[in-house]
Nucleic acid binder design. Sequence first.
DNA 1: TTTGAAATGTATCAAATGTTACAAACAGTG
DNA 2: CACTGTTTGTAACATTTGATACATTTCAAA
Lengths: 224, 224
Amino acid sequence: MIQPEILCQSPIFRGISPDELQELFRQIHYQVKSYQKNDLITIAGEVCDRLLIIQEGSVKAEMNDYSGKTIKIEDMSAPWPLATAFLFGKENRFPVTVSATSDVVMVSIPKPEFVKLLQLNSLILNNYLNTISTRAQFLSQKLKFLSFKTIRQKIAHYLLEKAGERLQTVEVPQSQKQLAEMFGVTRPSLARTLGEMVQEGLIETQRRAIKILDKAKMNQLLKG
Amino acid sequence: MIQPEILCQSPIFRGISPDELQELFRQIHYQVKSYQKNDLITIAGEVCDRLLIIQEGSVKAEMNDYSGKTIKIEDMSAPWPLATAFLFGKENRFPVTVSATSDVVMVSIPKPEFVKLLQLNSLILNNYLNTISTRAQFLSQKLKFLSFKTIRQKIAHYLLEKAGERLQTVEVPQSQKQLAEMFGVTRPSLARTLGEMVQEGLIETQRRAIKILDKAKMNQLLKG
DNA sequence: TTTGAAATGTATCAAATGTTACAAACAGTG
DNA sequence: CACTGTTTGTAACATTTGATACATTTCAAA
C-alpha cells in the first residue's frame, strides 16, 4: 500500500497533496515491494524500465568495477527516487547495484505508467523535468570545474565564481583539506600554490578569508 | 510561419509527422522570429523561459569569462533546440550568449506552452525526456572518465570499457591524436605511456588494435 | 613505383604536482 | 594555564606530464 503522505515529500511529487496523489495513483498501475535488509533491489546492467521510489528505509548504491569488486557510490533513503537519469535516455540500464541497508519498501512504477502520470499532472511533469535538468546542470558545472588543468586555474575559477562582480574578499567555508579534495589535488600542493599566489601579489590570505588583489591577472589565468 | 517538415527532424519532434506537428502547433502559442547574421539571439544570464528551436540557418554559442571576453563554445544549426537543459532546473538562465552566424529563423515556444505540448503528445514528452537524460548520462560518463588521474588509468578504463567481459583485443577507431585529445593529454605523452605498458607486458599494440594481456593488473590500476 | 602527407615512436628537458615529513599556528578542553 | 588534536605553512625529493623536436612508418594519390 502506498503512503501518500510520505511520497508527496519526494522531489517528484513535491507540491501534490496526499489526497491528490492517492487519486493519481488510482489511475495507474504500480507495485509496492518489500525488501529485507541486504536484499538486492537492482543489479547493475539490468534494464531500467520502471521508476523506483523509496517509501520506507534506506538503500546503498554500489558499482562493480571490471574485476567484479564493488565500490560504494551513494546512500539514499525515503522518499527518494532511484536512477532518475536512467529511466529515459539512450542507456537504459542501471549503472549501479542497489541493495537495502534496512528493511525497505519500494514503490515501482512501470515507465509507460509513469509517462501517463506525467501527462496527467503538470506539477509532476515539472518536478521530474526539474530533477533531471538540475542534475544535468550540476554535472555540467562540475565538468567545467574539472576542465581547468592547473591548481592556479582552479583556485582562480573558484574565487572569481564566489566573488561575483562585487566583493573582493571571499569567505571560504571549507578547510584547505576539503578544498583540496574538491579540487582533486593534495593539500600541500594547494597550500603551496596559494602561497605562490600570495607572493605574486594576486591574493592575500587570512585564515578562511581570501582577498583578491588583482582580478585582471586572475582572469588571465583562465584563458590559457 | 513554422515549417513542419524541418521541425519534425529536430530531436524533440522526431517521429511526429509534419501534418501532426502542424496540428499540434495550432493548439499552442508560439513565435517565429527572424534574425540577420550577427544578431544576438540570447544573452548569457538572461532568463530562459522559452524553448528555442533553430528552424533555419546556424548560430554560435559563446560564453563570457569573468573579464568580459568571450570564448566560443559551440556551433549549432537547424533544426536543433537550444539550451534544453536550462529550460527547467534550478538555474533558469542561459549560460551562453547565442548569436546568428547566418540569417536565422527561430521558433520560440514559451515554457508553459511547451509543457502543454509535452502533455498533449507522449512522443514529444519521451523525446524531450530522452534528450536531457541522454545529456545527463553523457556528462556523467565524461565526469567518470575525468576522475581517472593518470594516463595509465585513462587507458585502462578506456580499454576495459571497450573490451567488456569477452574480448581481449580492442579495435581503436580513433587515431592516437584524437584519443589523446579525448583523454585531455598530449599525443606524445599518450604514446609514451602506451609504450611503457607494452614493455611491462600489460598490452600489445598493433597499429589500431590493442590486445589486453593482463586484465587483472589493468583492473589494479583503476583502484588507486 | 615514387612521393608526400599524416600517423606514430622516441628522446630531451622543463614545469607541475604528488609524497612525505615536520614545524608552527590555532582551537577547544580540563 | 597546560595539553591535545586539528589545521596550516613549508621544505626536499620523486613522479608524471607537457613541450618540442625529429626519425620512422604507413598509406594513399600521382
